[in-house]
């Protein structure tokens, strides 16, 4: 296996680099030179020990030349900028499998009252638009970085319209501790991995308010239904939502304090303000942005009561209890109304 590249030194990027290192040489790109140097000298970053087969670099040309298989793991807000920097060195020979659980929005979401579908792009759509790379995929699933770095067993899904991308991704990443499944439902997998973030915020709230497992199960199940409604409105099939990136990731993030999004909801329920919470987080909680985006896309007519309620709590100063009453008093529909056959 040739050398494989990871772009980004966040928690998930580092964990992924370590997993890749079980099968191949890894080059990881750090935006800041001092971080690259730290990784190479101290073999430790963000609390993770770095596998000896991982080398960090600050040189874009080097990583793009040496690695034809690249895993960009960069927050959605920085993704476009990263692509612009990489673009001169990327060509159709590259395969990009991103692990970013967020959306790119063409406009400033704080400045607009609604969004058009064409103004919202998944990361793979952004890669296709901004670069000459065509073989694109994404990686998503219940992959809490801390557990991965502890080498706990886990699984993930790599989705691409190209079987070859899935194959290459599997070859690089599959191991006895990390099972890699394949899918051709790219859009569904990407949307599932984005949408579950705000469901996790709601789960954190429930936990913070002291609710038990029944409540959470209700939230997860109806949360998934809401994700499917959104996905279908955007042309995704419900399939992907039933897999690791959908129900799998929901179960992990909605039950774990390791999830940033979960912690946002939990701390809100404990009375902290959103600004305080965001200040305390070392990395981005994509779910907060996602709630806003879902709200701005409401014109497409999908059913999203949880996003509506969260929007009221996060952006409109509602009490969490008010939000909860709002969703609990909505009319109830069929249990599995998100399946096509219903």
């Amino acid at each position: 296996m040739k050398k494989v590249g990871v772009i980004g030194t966040g928690n998930f990027g580092l964990a992924l680099a370590n997993l890749l290192a079980l099968n191949c040489e890894v080059l990881i790109y750090a935006r800041r030179e001092e971080i690259a140097n730290k990784i190479n000298t101290e073999r430790e970053h963000k609390g993770q020990t770095i596998n000896e087969k991982v080398r960090a670099t600050n040189n874009i040309e080097e990583i793009a030349t040496d690695c034809k298989l690249l895993f960009p793991i960069v927050p959605s807000s920085n993704f476009k900028e990263m692509l612009e920097k990489f673009n001169p060195f990327l060509n159709p020979e590259h395969i990009l499998i991103h692990g970013t659980k967020g959306l790119h929005i063409e406009k400033d979401i704080n400045e607009v009252e609604e969004l058009n579908k064409t103004e919202v792009l998944t990361m793979s759509e952004l890669i296709l638009r901004e670069t000459s790379v065509v073989r694109v995929g994404c990686i998503a699933g219940p992959n809490l970085a801390k557990e991965l770095s502890n080498k706990e067993i886990a699984g993930t899904v790599i989705a691409s319209r190209y079987n070859e991308v899935v194959r290459e991704g599997k070859k690089a990443l599959n191991s006895s501790i990390f099972r890699v499944y394949g899918s051709n439902q790219v859009l569904g997998v990407e949307l599932a991995s984005v949408l579950k973030n705000y469901i996790a915020i709601a789960a954190g709230m429930l936990e913070g308010l002291g609710y038990g497992d029944n409540s959470k199960a209700l939230l997860i199940t109806r949360g998934m239904a809401e994700m499917v409604f959104f996905g279908k409105a955007f042309g995704a099939s419900e399939k992907a939502f039933m897999g690791l990136a959908g129900i799998g990731d929901l179960m992990a993030t909605c039950n774990s304090k390791l999830s940033r999004n979960f912690r946002v909801g939990y701390n809100l329920a404990k009375g902290k303000s959103i600004d305080e919470i965001l200040e305390d987080l070392s990395e981005v909680a994509e779910g907060i942005k996602t709630v806003k985006v879902v709200k701005l896309l409401a014109g497409y007519g999908f059913n999203s009561p949880l996003a509506d309620a969260l929007h009221k709590v996060i952006y409109e100063d509602w009490e969490i209890k008010q939000g909860l009453d709002y969703v609990m008093n909505l009319p109830v529909s069929d249990d599995t109304d998100f399946f096509s056959s219903n």
């Binding site: 673009n87 001169p88 060509n91 159709p92 638009r129 901004e130 670069t131 000459s132």
Partner: peptide, 9 residues
């Protein structure tokens, strides 16, 4: 010339 204006092989 790809859609982003770059020469590709």
């Amino acid at each position: 010339i790809s859609a982003v204006g770059k020469e590709v092989k």
